[in-house]
């Protein structure tokens, strides 16, 4: 009852892809030659950096990526065309990969950020890895993402506008973060820059396409942009943790990249023949916003869904 792939009794007919890899067909479906983005990276906390601040900073960057990845994954099976379904999933997967590295870094910098797990009083160590404890057992008030990441998807136009704004700001930030004195953050940034350059390119092209497509698409993408633009300023407002770590050469002050990001956005708007949006910015909650753990109504239902299975089985293995 052995079961093997059919013998190649028809020569070339059976392996049209053989030539792609010089006979090394393993390369494309079975390959193991990936880059571990953190291979050989020094994990020590850089001198002069407060580990607790570093952990908070990693949560800010990691939560942005995790929450937006989750939103984009909601498009899976619903995109306007198959090619777009695949593209949106690729962006979601890239961001999820960034989130995992950053949450793991947060936990290693300051283990006290990892929430204690319910039901672990039997003395056995928790089977839940730190990245998952942070993602699935942390309450909304402990999430540090910006509001732009948690806002609902809206239609495809609004989703494109959100990716454009998010990727433009994050790309500018990570480009500088590559020089961080924290070797892990620098490595994560170097990997992220390549990904975000692609995300921004995807979003910019689609933004211009929709803005210059039909009357309907122009109306929709303009409305979508106005919706997400309410969260523009928050992206460039520095939290004290960011300022402190920027001073130590570990983080980037987001205010420092605002000019660069806005210039890129202006290019896209000009190609779209659209004016710079003049929309009221979403106000803070008593001076607090996403970076402080204060959120919009959108986040807690998102987390309730995302965390439901993990929390139902706090001792589960997956």
């Amino acid at each position: 009852m052995s079961y093997e792939a059919p013998a190649s009794d028809h020569g070339d007919h059976d392996s049209p892809y053989e030539g792609l890899f010089g006979g090394d067909s393993d390369h494309w479906a079975f390959g193991t030659d990936f880059d571990d983005p953190l291979a050989g990276i020094e994990a020590a906390i850089p001198d002069g950096a407060d580990p607790r601040a570093l952990a908070q900073y990693c949560l800010m960057l990691g939560d942005d990526a995790l929450v937006l990845s989750h939103r984009l994954s909601q498009w899976c099976g619903r995109a306007p065309e198959l090619e777009l379904d695949i593209a949106l999933a690729n962006i979601a997967l890239d961001l999820l990969g960034q989130a995992r590295l950053l949450l793991a870094r947060a936990a290693s910098a300051d283990p006290s950020v990892v929430p204690p797990l319910p039901g672990s009083s039997d003395g056995l160590p928790s089977p839940v890895p730190a990245e998952d404890a942070l993602a699935f057992f942390r309450d909304d008030r402990a999430y540090r993402n910006a509001w732009l990441a948690e806002a609902p998807n809206g239609d495809f136009g609004q989703t494109v506008a959100r990716i454009l704004l998010f990727a433009t700001a994050r790309l500018a930030l990570l480009e500088r973060l590559r020089a961080s004195r924290d070797a892990v953050l620098a490595a994560v940034a170097a990997k992220g820059v390549r990904e975000l350059a692609y995300h921004r390119d995807f979003a910019a092209r689609w933004f211009v396409t929709l803005a210059q497509g039909t009357e309907e698409s122009r109306g929709r993408v303009t409305a979508g942009l106005a919706e997400v633009w309410r969260h523009h300023d928050e992206l460039f407002r520095a939290h004290p943790v960011e300022r402190e770590l920027a001073g130590a050469g570990v983080a980037v002050d987001p205010a420092d990249v605002a000019g660069e990001a806005d210039a890129a956005l202006a290019t896209v708007l000009a190609a779209s023949d659209l004016p710079w949006p003049r929309v009221p910015q979403a106000g803070q909650l008593g001076g607090r916003s996403g970076r402080d753990g204060a959120h919009t109504e959108a986040l807690s239902p998102l987390l309730a869904e995302m965390q439901s299975v993990a929390r139902a089985h706090p001792r589960g293995r997956w």
Partner: peptide
């Protein structure tokens, strides 16, 4: 996908 119970499983399923 939106309820995958670990980040690794979420990535795999997506």
């Amino acid at each position: 996908i939106t309820r995958a119970p670990s980040l690794r499983r979420k990535a795999i399923l997506l």
